[in-house]
Design a protein around this nucleic acid. Sequence first.
RNA 1: GGUCCGGUAGCUCAGUCGGAUAGAGCAGCAGCCUUCUAAGCUGCGGGCCGUGGGUUCGAAUCCCGCCCGGAUCACCA
Length: 595
Amino acid sequence: MINLELAIKEAFIEIFKQKFTADFNTDMVVVQQTRKEIEGDYTINVFPLVKAAAKAPEALAHEIGTGLVQILDFVSNYNVIKGFLNLTIADTYWLELAKTMTQDPNFGIKESDPNKSPILIEYSSPNTNKPLHLGHVRNNLLGYSIAEILKADGNNVVKVNLVNDRGIHICKSMLAWEKFSQGATPQSTNLKGDHLVGKYYVEFDRLYKSQIAELVAQGVEEEEAAKQAPAILEAQEMLRQWEAGNEQVVGLWKKMNSWVYEGFDATYQKMGVDFDKIYYESETYLLGKSTVQEALKNQVLFVKEDGSVWADLTDEGLDQKLLLRADGTSVYMTQDIGTAKLRMDDYQPSSMLYVVGNEQNYHFDVLKIVLQKMGYTWAKDIYHISYGMVELPHGKMKSREGTVVDADDLMDEVIASAEEITRQSGKMEGLSVEEAQQLFYKIGMGALKFFLLKVDPKKKMLFNPAESIDFNGNTGPFVQYTHARIQSVLRKSTDHTFEPWQSELIINDKERNLIKMIGNFPEVVHQAALGFSPALMASYVYDLAKEYNQFYHDNPILKEENKALASFRLDLSRSTAAIIRNALKMLGIQAPNQM
RNA sequence: GGUCCGGUAGCUCAGUCGGAUAGAGCAGCAGCCUUCUAAGCUGCGGGCCGUGGGUUCGAAUCCCGCCCGGAUCACCA
C-alpha cells in the first residue's frame, strides 16, 4: 500500500511549485485527516501558503484541488471551505486498504529485529518493607504496557525490576520483627509474606514515634529527638552490621526478604506483569560504591570534613549531592549509579527507561548529571518516565491514616465487582465454573487497568473506586464487550466463506469510517511508542470500539443478503476484533470471547 | 523562596510540534431489544479552555506577567 498522506503532500508541493514559486517551506504543507462532520478524507490548510502564492485562500485551494484530482487517481473529488482543501479518496482505495488489513491478523504490529540493541525498561521497583499499593499498581501497569507497546513497534525490550532489598527501611522492619513478633511467620499467621513484613514496618514506626514523643516531653527538640530515639539508632546499627556481613543480621534479612518475594510474586502474577531480569540493590550497591570511589580519585567528587563523599552540581543549577555517608554506607543514588553501570554491561541497551513517580524527578536529573560527570556517555540515553501520583477522592494516600489502597485488596475487589455484574447480566451461559472465574478476572482487571492507563501518565490522577469498576462508556469492559460481541458473530458465521474482494462493493459511511480507523492503527502504535503513552492506545481502542458499535448497530452482517457485502462486513469485523485484541494486549488486558 | 508539573462541561478526562462550530464518558432527561450479545445505539441540555497582556490571517495550544493546586530542593528510598 502506498502512503496516502505522503503521496498527497508530494503532489501538492509539485503542483504548487509549478504554478507559483519554488521558494517556500514544504513544512507548511500539512496533510491531516478531515474532521468527521465535514465531507472529505484528507485536508490541507492552504493559509500558510497564501503569501507565497499571492492569491486568496479559496482560489488557491481550488486551483490545487483541481490539480490533485487530475494527478492522483485515488483522489476522486475535493471541496473547499474557507482555506481548507478537503480531498475525497476513492472507495477503490479504501477497499484495497481493507483487503490488506483484513488479510493480516497482525496488521500494525511490527516484528522486532533480534540484532537491534534493546531498550531496557525498569518498572515496579518495590521496597521489601511493605506490600504493593495503588501507586505501585499504576507504576506496574504503565511499565508493562509501555514495554508491550515498544515491542509492538518493533523494538527489543528488556523488562527489569529493581528490588530495593537493603537500606535503613528494611532494618526497621527487621528490628520490629525481632522485638515484637515472637517468631511469627507467614505460615504461623496465615498472612501473605509482604503483608506480614509490612506490619512490622508499621510497628517500628509506632515505637519510633512514641520514643520521639517521650524525648520531646523531656524537653528535647523534636528534630534532635528524631535523631536520638533508640529505635532509629538501633536500626542504623543494624544497617552497619548488615553491610559488615554480620551473619545473624544477614540471616534474618534473607528470611524476611524471602517472605516478601513470595508475596510479591503472587501480586505480580495476579496483576499480569513480568520481568526478564530482576536486579537487587544488595547486589549492585557495592559496584555503586566502587564507582564512586573511582570517581573520587578522578577528582570528579569531593570529601567533606566528616569523610562523607559528595558531588558538586552547583554548576548545573542543582545542589550538592551526598553519595557516601561519613560511615561509608551508601545511599539511594549510590545504588542507582551501580545498577545503571551493571545494566549497561549486561545488555548494552540503546536507552534505559525508568518508570518512577514524579516525586523523583530531581533524583533522575541528578543521576544523569552525576553519571555524565563521571564520564559515562550513555548517561544521555537515560529517560525518566515520570508519572503523577494517584489520589483518592478524600485526598492522598497516607499510611498513618490507613487510607492506603492495598494492591491485593484492590484487585480482589474489582474482580468481585465483575463477578457480581456479570452474574446479573446473565451472560455466562455455557461457561464452566473455572471459565467463569477466568472471565470475572479478565473483566475486573480489564476495568482496573483501563481506568488507570487511560489517563496521561504524567498527570496526577484521581482514583474513584466506584468509577474504576464502571463497565459503561469509556472503560475496559466496554472495549472487551465489543470484542466479545464480534466473536459471537464470527462463531455464527460458518456458512459465510464467500470471497468478497472480486465483487464490486458499494460501501457506506460507517464502513468507510471503520476502515479508516483500522488503517490508523500502525501509526497509533508508533506514536504511542514514541510518546511512551498507553493512554494514547487506550483512547484509540475506545474510539475504535465505539466506531464499531455504530457500524454494528446500523449494518446487518450475517443477515445481509448480498453475499459479498456480508462477507466484507464479516472480514471487517474480524479485523476490528484483531485490532482490539492487540491493542488491549498492549495495555495488559485480555479480550474474552464471551461476556 | 528556587526549579518542575498541572488548571478544559456538575464530576473524571481527551484535545496542546497554532487551524474549521473545543470533544468523550459519568451524572440528568427522552427514545430504541419477536431481528447477528442493550456491558450497546440515538437524541437533548450543559463551556469567559484559571486570569491579564502579547505574537498571528487564526491561540485551549506559542511567549510574558499574575492567581490557584501539586511535586521537589534529605546523611528516606
